[in-house]
């Protein structure tokens, strides 16, 4: 079974990647905009944050810089879609591919270490929390970000953004330019993801240009698993589902890694397959539920 250590690690990962899950929730669920930019904006955030810290910026400020860079990346996808009329999925793939080169330019090489550099985690090292520290710290960050997102989506502006995803005809008739909403919404989503990327880099002590591969699937898995557990409906529930789902997803991965049957054991390279199966299972679960009820 799962060791206490592995459980803590999964919790920590779940919260660190919580921001990513929130970003994916914003595009997939709120804006109805399948956005793959995130695979590029997570390493973008990591790169910007790492470079900023290396240049002597305070770690917290470097996260804000990462978010700003992520916003720009998302806005590019939004503009490609709304102004140049490129299909949303393709627009996001184009930005994602372009970011690969951009990220290497930012770092000057494919990866950059933060060894011996200050990180946001320095804030809690003096508190003597042993291995509870990191999960607690990132848990608080994830909760604050989640609360901020709930607040934002309940403002007059946020409501209009939700309406743009729900019913473009209606919100246009109410005087809102859906194109603006898509650009800002996808931008905000990628700002969250890039901030998450900055946290990931600081947590693991390095940024790598390939660290974003599969971000979208992991984020989507989190959102869907969370919805399977908490149900759908309402912003509060959606945001909570994304965060709960993120933790459950990392727990499921940790559980899969601890799985042993005789001499057979799963390795980290099997995780993509496990993730894909998890998403399929989470997608099928509601269908099975209704089919059972009908019988």
């Amino acid at each position: 079974m799962l060791s206490w250590y592995a459980f803590n690690g999964a919790l920590e990962q779940g919260f660190v990647y919580g921001l990513t899950a929130l970003g994916v929730y914003l595009t997939f669920r709120v804006l109805d905009f399948p956005d793959l930019t995130v695979d590029g904006s997570l390493p973008l955030g990591a790169a910007v944050s790492t470079v900023a810290i290396t240049a002597g910026w305070p770690p917290a400020l470097s996260i804000l810089a990462a978010a700003a860079a992520g916003f720009c990346a998302g806005a590019v996808t939004g503009l490609l879609n709304t102004r140049l009329h490129i299909l949303h999925l393709l627009a996001s793939i184009l930005t994602m591919i372009a970011l690969y080169s951009v990220n290497i330019r930012i770092m000057g090489r494919p990866n950059l270490t933060l060894l011996g550099k200050p990180t946001v985690l320095d804030a809690i090292t003096g508190l003597n929390l042993s291995y509870f520290g990191a999960p607690l710290f990132f848990g608080i960050i994830a909760l604050v970000a989640g609360a901020a997102l709930v607040w934002f989506l309940s403002t007059a502006f946020g409501q209009a953004m939700r309406a743009a995803g729900d019913n473009p005809t209606m919100i246009t008739a109410q005087g809102v330019d859906t194109r603006t909403m898509i650009v800002l919404g996808v931008g905000l989503s990628n700002a969250l993801v890039a901030a998450g990327g900055g946290l990931v880099a600081q947590n693991q002590g390095a940024a790598d240009v390939n660290m974003g591969v599969g971000t979208i699937v992991a984020g989507l898995a989190s959102v869907i698993i969370g919805e399977t557990v908490l149900g759908k409906g309402g912003v509060l529930r959606g945001v909570a589902a994304a965060l709960v789902g993120s933790v459950l997803y990392r727990l499921a991965i940790a559980l899969a890694l601890s799985f042993k049957l005789g001499s057979f054991a799963l390795t980290p390279s099997d995780l993509k397959l496990v993730t894909a199966l998890l998403v399929v299972a989470a997608l099928v679960a509601p269908q099975l539920k209704t089919r059972m009820r009908r019988r």
């Binding site: 309940s154 403002t155 007059a156 502006f157 309406a163 008739a173 109410q174």
Partner: peptide, 15 residues
Amino acid sequence: ALASRRGACRGFGPG
């Protein structure tokens, strides 16, 4: 609430 702001500026006050 969305309709009550038809054509108006939508800020960051409560919806």
